[in-house]
């Protein structure tokens, strides 16, 4: 792994590129033909594809290449990339605000900034700052074990060399406490457990932190949806009854069974009798999807804000 933490951040070149991307995204865009995938290459300057949110462009070699080109630590690049909303073949490309947010992160950086230290301080801020993960954990042992990991990150940010056995010991201590644990507290601590390694050696740890956190938030969102496993089972059971009725009707000869009109009316009546109707299922699933999207957006904006605070603090 190339350590570029002591190198010079070539932020002006990057800011120019980001401004170009922002201008391009602000301009008139041709709507893709129906069914056609988003042409990312047409709207995102090639070096910035690493921040496109498209999985394949965020691979480690792409991160390394970008990091080398702009004199940025791979961990910092990985974190910014991980904080972008996930995009796919048919998702709209990043908009002007996305590029603006990255510019806001890069602008305050001094060219000699230790970006690995910034990332380490971000992890500490994530655990201790507002809204703090730490405050959601009430078990003092779990709290202390997670604190120990965060302490290693803070020491590393100060320039201490943390030997691998220390990371491992801290991780296994927390992991043992979390073994078999479920619920919000455990999930919050698992985010810190996922961070327990030197981010300079393994920048991909940042992806793990963001992924573990997203998982927690999504579970949180799903819990607020009024359609759980019980409703799903009731729905499927009732659909099974309707299916059985339809199969039975189908097996009868036309002269002994009710007319198709009567059959359809009967099916509609049966559907209305469902204790967990399909309409409500579709409605709740739509709400879940929206809730997930909103949460993901708020999560990313919040963390970009937190990271901005850390980078600005470093410049003071």
């Amino acid at each position: 792994m190339t350590d570029v933490a002591d190198g010079m951040v070539r932020k002006h070149a990057l800011l120019e590129l980001l401004a170009e991307a922002q201008a391009q995204a602000s301009g008139p865009m041709e709507k893709p033909a129906a069914g056609a995938p988003t042409d990312y290459a047409a709207v995102v300057p090639a070096p910035l594809m690493v921040f496109s949110g498209v999985g394949g462009h965020m691979a480690q070699d792409a991160v390394e290449e970008f990091a080398g080109r702009f004199g940025m630590h791979p961990a910092f690049v990985t974190l910014i990339a991980a904080l972008q909303p996930a995009r796919g073949a048919y998702t709209p490309p990043p908009g002007p605000d996305d590029w603006k947010a990255i510019s806001a992160l890069v602008s305050p950086l001094p060219s000699e900034a230790d970006l690995a230290a910034i990332v380490r301080l971000w992890i500490a801020a994530f655990w201790l700052g507002e809204p703090a993960l730490r405050s959601r954990v009430s078990d003092p042992d779990i709290q202390a074990a997670a604190d120990a990991i965060v302490d290693l990150h803070r020491r590393a940010a100060r320039g201490d060399v943390i030997a691998r056995p220390h990371w491992r010991a801290a991780r296994t201590a927390l992991d043992a406490l979390l073994s078999g644990a479920t619920g919000l507290e455990a999930a919050c601590a698992r985010i810190i457990c996922a961070s327990a390694w030197d981010i300079a050696v393994a920048p991909a740890v940042l992806n793990d932190i963001v992924a573990t956190w997203s998982e927690l938030l999504m579970k949180d969102a799903d819990a607020r949806i009024c359609w759980g496993p019980t409703e799903e089972r009731l729905h499927l059971d009732h659909m099974g009854k309707i299916r059985a009725f339809a199969l039975e009707w189908n097996d009868l000869s036309p002269d002994t069974r009710i007319s198709p009109e009567q059959f359809r009316a009967e099916v509609e009546t049966l559907k209305k009798q469902s204790p967990a109707p399909a309409e409500r299922r579709a409605e709740e699933q739509g709400r879940a999807l929206k809730e997930r999207r909103d949460l993901a957006f708020r999560m990313l904006q919040g963390q970009i804000g937190l990271l901005c605070g850390v980078t600005t603090g470093v410049n003071r």
């Binding site: 991780r171 296994t172 073994s179 996922a194 961070s195 991909a204 793990d208 573990t212």
Partner: peptide, 12 residues
């Protein structure tokens, strides 16, 4: 798996 959970599973 995340890096830490893969390590954890190996240790388990």
């Amino acid at each position: 798996r995340t890096r830490s959970s893969l390590a954890s599973e190996i240790e388990t």
